[in-house]
Amino acid sequence: MASSTTFLVLTALLALLSWQAIASDPSPLQDFCVADKDSHVRVNGFVCKDPKDVKADDFFLAANLDKPRDTTVSKVGSNVTLINVMRIPGLNTLGISLARIDYAPLGENPPHTHPRATEILTVLEGTLYVGFVTSNQDNKLFTKTLNKGDVFVFPEGLIHFQFNPCPDKPAVAIAALSSQNPGAITIANAVFGSKPPISDDVLAKAFQVEKKTVDWLQAQFWSDNHN
């Protein structure tokens, strides 16, 4: 009986470790695995370039992250410049990416999630009101007002936001994310701007509103602030 129990415990631990291993970006088994974007092979990530063909430019991008971005291109008043494996092939398998976020006065990076990454955000200029919501059943909201030099963490997969409360000053932040390709799901865009649209019967029931309210929301132009 004791040996059977021990076997079950070991099996459960191995399953847990295996799940943790597949729930994050793969760890590199060599110095680097520069993404070969020309390969026709499709895997969970990118095929490695032959190391003989790798150059310094595979790890470089002239991103001009010191320059302000145009926050008028989005109705929410923010502009996210993401530097991920799509832009720097050398990030493949390294489990990290970077973003600059510019906020207009009263601009926001609306509620969204990163399905594959934890985010750590640093305010470079201005003030931000930020927060995230825990998962069911609690749905507890954690918020903080950040000033220049302050840092805040958004746990992987949780809905979070940033808002510039100043009516006359822009704000800028830099975020690091624990994935080469963190993904972003902006809640309003995904729910009301999906293609094709989600049935208004489904959304009316989910949000406990009339169908005409859902129809109005689906008719709006849901712009993307990620560039």
Rank of each mutant, 00 (worst) to 15 (best):
S3K: 10
S4G: 08
T6S: 05
T11H: 04
L14F: 02
S18R: 12
S18C: 04
A21P: 06
A23T: 10
L29N: 12
F32K: 10
C33E: 01
K37F: 12
S39R: 03
H40A: 03
V47L: 10
C48P: 11
D50P: 14
K55F: 14
K55D: 03
F60S: 11
F60C: 14
S74C: 07
K75T: 09
V76L: 06
N79M: 07
N79L: 12
V80P: 13
L82K: 15
R87N: 09
R87L: 10
T93E: 09
L98F: 06
L98A: 13
D102V: 12
P111W: 10
R116M: 04
T118C: 00
V123G: 10
L124N: 15
G126F: 05
L128Y: 04
F132K: 03
T134M: 05
S135M: 15
Q137W: 10
K140V: 13
T143S: 11
K144Q: 12
G149N: 09
D150L: 02
F152S: 14
V153T: 15
F154Q: 05
P155N: 00
P155T: 03
G157Y: 02
Q162F: 00
P165M: 04
C166W: 06
K169D: 12
P170A: 15
A175Y: 00
S179W: 00
N181W: 02
P182R: 11
G183A: 05
A184D: 06
N189R: 03
V191K: 01
V191Y: 03
V191P: 06
S194F: 06
D201C: 03
L203I: 06
A204V: 04
A204I: 03
K212E: 06
V214T: 15
V214F: 06
W216P: 15
F221M: 12
